[in-house]
Design a protein around this nucleic acid. Structure first.
Length: 891
DNA sequence: CTAGGGTTAG
């Protein structure tokens, strides 16, 4: 009895020990606890039990100790049971040792141990982890052979595996054929759709799951959030966000990170800020998400600031490094870039190929190609991106030969991809080498990359830069898919070719097809409005800019200043300028040019000084603008002073356009001798633009000798610029030297060059009216002619005499047509007078410069009819008022 | 058995 009691007690204590050990093992939270328990299990003689050995194998795996798992597995004798094999396979898969897991699986099959439903999920996971499609199919067959085809857990694992193989059809088939599904089945399929770009399907499945009565969890939300983000489905995303709040799973750091990432894709930075600051727990991924998010929204400074904040509390990892390096490259912060590179080396991240690729890019963007090359050479496993990054660096820094050398080296062991070809196209465009571009295009077709959207867009751009708008248009029409970049590229192409009608047609087509314009669209469109003086369209774009919330973007503001100034509204230019918080040298230059165009030379000078005072250094274009402004206001001394200033204070070597500005400055003010002397003392060889400028300058003072000398130079230089030859021809016509006129015209014809026909246009009540020189085919031709005759009579009474010098331009053509009163701006002005109420100011645009006689006539007209007449010619604005012009005759 | 963050190009 005693013995029996003892025996009972022993059995009970044995049971107690068993239960408490098993409980302790399940709740162990550190390797140390695990080791202690393991020895206890051994001393208790329980280590051979199927249950404890299996548990130990799993527990070692949980603490990332697969070797521990293996030693337990090996010590069990004589043979392992299915449970232990399953635990071992799961242990290996859990620790990323996929091929070992598969090795164990095949051993298990060789031993003719029968697998059960617990075996397969980890085996399937291992196939997925190895991306071993073939093995995955084999295992799937095993599953079917063993009759486990309808098992829930195996089905879920299969859905996940096929998703990772990008075989969504198979994933879907497994899902559809399952006998029963749980939330994991739905989640796996939703994530699968999300990560394979089937965003609409992911969102739809999410809704379907809820309608099927499945309660979503953190995994469901994490699966659908990226889909909402990538689709920019803001409303859907907000619905899911609301659900997250309601379910109280915001404290799940993965869910919150998903929300963050989604709102960054929506570009809703305020929401991101709020979510990030309200997060209970932030981890490295959260920081990486915001750092990367800001960097992708172009807020590189913000991104770097966050990185510096992060370093105090978290260890940056490879992804952090990547994001911040990108930001460094974008803003050219070489110092911080080097610092991060140092950090990389210190923390053993140097061998990461992706991080090294970003480094190559960063150094290239900072202009340090030597450093790029060094990083490249140190990469052990160079991938395609490594090569592309370095080649792109060379192209960006205009080292084209080096880029080509590298390309042929790369081709020895790697096949270029579409990115490589896009870079080559960009190079052809930069070099304006159509032959090269066409060769690349052929290669692209041969390699089958011509269906790629990005490649298509790059082709449009390349042809445009090579001056082949027709080919750009052909490419555009041939494209099956078009995105916003496609539209922006073709609009930019039209602008480049100065085909503004085509450009506006493209914009309206874009709208009809429902494509939303973005910031680059605005930057492409505003110059079209500037050129055409299409103020109404320009204003529409301005309101679009507000709607898009991009009004504080500096390049946008700069384009707006230019647009308003060229559309006749200096007032609005100034308004935009004043409202800009950030200004760069382009902003100030736009302002200075605007003042210049309106003859506000003094204000231009003040603006230039102000710019210098704010610490912005003028560049060579700013100097063109200021000298131009001086020239249009007769400020000869000031203009010359700036020319010296540029060389002495800013060490900017004057280019040909600066010399042309000074020639213009001198000759416009009648200082022709000084202008000629200046040309002869130039260190650069004077080209047609210099002599052409001098020749234009002669028009005001009518100095025939200088004009003839300049003309002689232009003829000798044999330039392809039609404008200069027309000027020369006009000079000879004025002198009555008809043989020379005929000679010039013949040589122009032989070269296939045509004079730009003069035309003027004006807008009345939202309609644009265009008038060509000598045009008769417009409404109210008779009335316009009658009005011009009446005006001519009134002007004669005021003392006007026609300056026939200007009438002789096109004598060989129809003489009547070329009477002075046929000049297009006069037709436009008369038409405007007829069709607007008395006293209304008129605004006329002209593609060429206003001729001297028209300038005089317009002054008379402004006085006779008492109207303000604003005329924009190719160069500037003239505001005619009560018999005078704002240009002070420095036209 | 299911979830989140990085690279080259238009």
């Amino acid at each position: 009895m005693k013995a029996g009691k003892l025996c009972n007690l022993g059995q009970r204590s044995q049971e107690l020990l068993y239960v408490s050990l098993s409980k302790a093992l399940s709740s162990a939270t550190s390797s140390r606890q695990l080791y202690k328990l393991h020895s206890l299990i051994i001393t208790s003689g329980l280590d051979q039990s199927v249950f404890f050995s299996g548990k130990l194998i799993s527990k070692y795996a949980q603490f990332k100790d697969p070797v521990g798992s293996l030693s337990v597995f090996r010590r069990v004798s004589p043979a392992n049971s299915v449970y232990q094999w399953n635990s071992m396979i799961r242990a290996l898969t859990h620790n990323g040792l996929f091929s070992d897991a598969l090795e164990f699986y095949s051993q298990m099959r060789n031993l003719e141990l029968k697998q059960d439903t617990y075996t397969f999920p980890s085996v399937i996971n291992a196939c997925a982890g190895l991306s071993d499609l073939e093995m995955g199919r084999i295992v799937h067959n095993h599953v079917l052979e063993m009759g486990f085809g309808s098992d829930l857990y195996i089905g879920n694992a299969l859905i996940d595996m096929y998703s990772r193989f990008n075989d969504l059809d198979m994933a879907r088939r497994v899902f559809d054929e399952m006998a029963s599904r749980d939330v994991v089945s739905w989640n796996s399929l939703i994530s699968g759709c999300s990560s394979n770009g089937y965003w609409e399907e992911a969102i739809q499945l999410f809704h379907q799951s809820r309608m099927a009565g499945v309660i979503p969890d953190s995994f469901s939300v994490s699966g659908v959030l990226p889909a909402c983000g990538d689709l920019v489905a803001i409303e859907e995303g907000q619905v899911v966000h609301g659900l997250v709040e309601k379910m109280g799973i915001k404290k799940d750091v993965i869910v919150s990170n998903g929300l963050l990432s989604m709102y960054f894709k929506f570009n809703r930075l305020t929401d991101c800020k709020l979510i990030f600051s309200e997060m209970v727990v932030q981890d490295t991924v959260s920081w990486n998400t915001v750092i990367c998010g800001y960097s992708q929204s172009g807020l590189f400074e913000e991104s770097i600031k966050l990185f510096l904040e992060m370093v105090d509390n978290f260890e940056p990892d490879l992804l952090t490094i990547g994001s911040v390096l990108r930001a460094c490259g974008q803003i050219g912060d070489l110092k911080l870039g080097k610092y991060v590179h140092d950090y990389m080396i210190r923390n053993g991240y140097e061998c990461d190929t992706t991080a090294s690729n970003i480094l190559i890019n960063m150094y290239a963007k900072c202009g340090n190609l030597l450093a790029s090359r060094e990083v490249f050479d140190r990469i052990k496993f160079k991938d395609l991106v490594s090569w592309n990054s370095l080649i792109s660096g060379y192209i960006q820094n205009e080292c084209f030969e080096e880029a080509m050398k590298l390309l042929s080296k790369m081709k020895v062991d790697l096949r270029p991809d579409s990115v490589t070809y896009v870079m080559l196209l960009s190079m052809s465009g930069q070099l304006v080498r159509i032959h090269h571009g066409k060769e690349v295009h052929c290669d692209i077709i041969k390699m089958g990359f011509d269906s790629s959207l990005v490649v298509g867009n790059a082709l449009i751009d390349m042809y445009a830069k090579c001056g082949k708008l027709e080919d750009s248009l052909k490419q555009f029409e041939n494209m099956r898919d078009r995105d916003i970049v496609t539209w922006n590229s073709i609009i930019t192409a039209c602008v480049h070719a100065e085909d503004y009608n085509q450009g506006f047609r493209m914009i309206s087509r874009m709208r009809i097809e429902g494509m939303m314009p973005d910031l680059p669209t605005m930057l492409a469109t505003l110059p079209m409005c500037s050129f055409l003086a299409a103020k109404r369209q320009g204003k529409e774009i301005h309101s679009c800019i507000f709607k898009l919330g991009i009004q504080s973007d500096v390049p946008v503001g700069n384009a707006l200043i230019e647009m308003y100034s060229k559309c006749g509204s200096l007032k609005h230019s100034l308004l935009v300028f004043e409202q800009m918080k950030m200004k760069d040298v382009v902003t100030w230059t736009a302002l200075i040019s605007a003042y210049g165009m309106y003859g506000e030379g003094k204000k231009a000078l003040r603006a230039f000084e102000e710019m210098e005072a704010t610490g912005i250094a003028p560049d060579h274009i700013a100097f063109v603008a200021i000298i131009f402004a001086c020239s249009h206001s007769g400020l000869v001394d000031e203009g010359q002073a700036y020319f010296d200033h540029m060389k002495k204070k800013y060490k900017i070597e004057p280019r040909i356009e600066h010399y042309a500005c000074v020639v213009d400055l001198l000759s416009r003010s009648g200082l022709l001798a000084e202008a000629e002397e200046f040309i002869l003392s130039m260190p650069l060889k004077p080209d047609a633009s210099i002599w052409g400028t001098l020749l234009s300058g002669c028009r005001a003072s009518g100095n025939v000798k200088v004009a003839e000398r300049a003309s002689q130079h232009i003829i000798e230089l044999n330039s392809d610029n039609t404008g200069y030859h027309v000027l020369v021809s006009n000079v000879y016509a004025a002198l009555g030297k008809w043989d020379k006129v005929r000679m010039i015209r013949k040589s122009l014809r032989n070269k296939g060059l045509k004079k730009d026909p003069g035309c003027s246009w004006m807008e009345i009540r939202n309609k644009v009216y265009v008038f060509g020189t000598g045009d008769r085919f417009f409404e109210q031709y008779e009335e316009v002619n009658r009005l011009l005759e009446i005006l001519a009579g009134l002007m004669a009474k005021e003392g006007y005499v026609a300056d026939l010098q200007f009438a002789l331009h096109d004598v060989e053509e129809d003489e009547k047509r070329d009477l002075l009163c046929g000049h297009s701006e006069r037709l436009a002005i008369a038409f405007g007078l007829l069709n607007t109420k008395p006293g209304t100011p008129l605004q006329v645009m002209k593609n060429l410069r206003v001729c001297g006689d028209c300038h005089t006539v317009t002054k008379y007209i402004s006085k006779i009819v008492q109207r303000e007449l604003l005329v924009r010619d190719a160069n500037r604005f003239h505001l005619f008022k009560d018999g005078t012009c704002s240009c002070g005759d420095y036209w």
